[in-house]
Design a protein around this nucleic acid. Sequence first.
DNA 1: CATTGAATAGCACGATCGTTCGTTCTAGAC
DNA 2: GTCTAGAACGAACGATCGTGCTATTCAATG
Lengths: 203, 203
Amino acid sequence: MGTLRKGEVTRGSILDTSLALASQVGMAGLSIGELASRTGMSKSGLFAHFGSKESLQLQVLEEARQRFIALVAVPALKKPRGAPRLQALFDLWLDWSQADFSPGGCIFMAAASELDDRPGPLRDALVESQREWLATLATAVRQGSAAGKLRRNLDPDQFAYEFYSITLAYHHFSRLLRDPAAETRARRAWRDLLTQARRPEPA
Amino acid sequence: MGTLRKGEVTRGSILDTSLALASQVGMAGLSIGELASRTGMSKSGLFAHFGSKESLQLQVLEEARQRFIALVAVPALKKPRGAPRLQALFDLWLDWSQADFSPGGCIFMAAASELDDRPGPLRDALVESQREWLATLATAVRQGSAAGKLRRNLDPDQFAYEFYSITLAYHHFSRLLRDPAAETRARRAWRDLLTQARRPEPA
DNA sequence: CATTGAATAGCACGATCGTTCGTTCTAGAC
DNA sequence: GTCTAGAACGAACGATCGTGCTATTCAATG
């Protein structure tokens, strides 16, 4: 057990609250005042933990990244290469998107479109984490086809693009349109994509 | 030529500016002050045209909707049913996403994730316009397969979901990741989707 | 050209934003 | 139990937000 001061504990609980709030209203929508009232703290007391709003935002993003790795990437890597691992990546992403701590859905997607035209460290950090995720997907594909479990002429980056596109659409259909069929649609699209990836080489 | 007062002209140019700004910073990021300085007007002078910020936002959305119909939906309906029309819908959407008046990419997608957890008339209007678009896509598919140009057992709504997912991913890859391959990836995914839709019924 | 209503500007409001400062409290080490 | 560093608070800052007023300027009509 590492020695954790009082401050570390409250900092953690502030990040908890921030994560939930940011998944709903985005990174820019994270206001210190709102956060203070939700945690029952004073604005200045809360602020002192981070020093600046940008620092808070960066730490929220980093916290989300750590959780994503722990909840999605790591467990999936325990599955055997090829289809099982890809399926786990997909299933775990869906779980992630529905997690209790992010009532607004995947926080990265909430952040993505609001940051795509706002240069700065926060945008850079988000881009980095997304690239990391895409690389994870592409690697899983590459290993799968190297092991002969997937089509040999599969383009890993193209596969990652299409994987990503299905999850993006799931986010939209479930969050914005509140479409009850969102998950079914996503799973169907995914099944088709995976089937294609296993099909033997076309002529 | 309808009689257009001076006010109508400036209102139009304000909407022009708003559209460009909103595509970059979103609907919530549309501030009256920023808009005033960009158009060279006073805050109050500009404000008088709309009466409230929400009204401004609604009118911006409606303006975008009208343009979308004129630039994407209508021209595509002039193409013959089946694959040509679907292809036109896709190509025209890409043009739309790269249009000069929306330097931040498709404004609907910029608005979607920021509004998905903010109930209100603006969200309602956006949802309505997106449903309209999805219905247009589904209808194009239905007509195509009824005419025997596409697989008969094609699910129109599933097709619309996958069409939409490709364009969503294009938005992300080009805007956030600034990936130069974004358009290539999107076109490849689209080609595969369309090919599947034309393939004869599977066993 | 004169008149009048529309269009725009100027100014101020309350609220909230992120941030700073000085103070108070309290937890942890001796 | 005392001392001290860290944690939290309260009040205030300048800036900006959306939104009212009132006054002024301008464009369209007779």
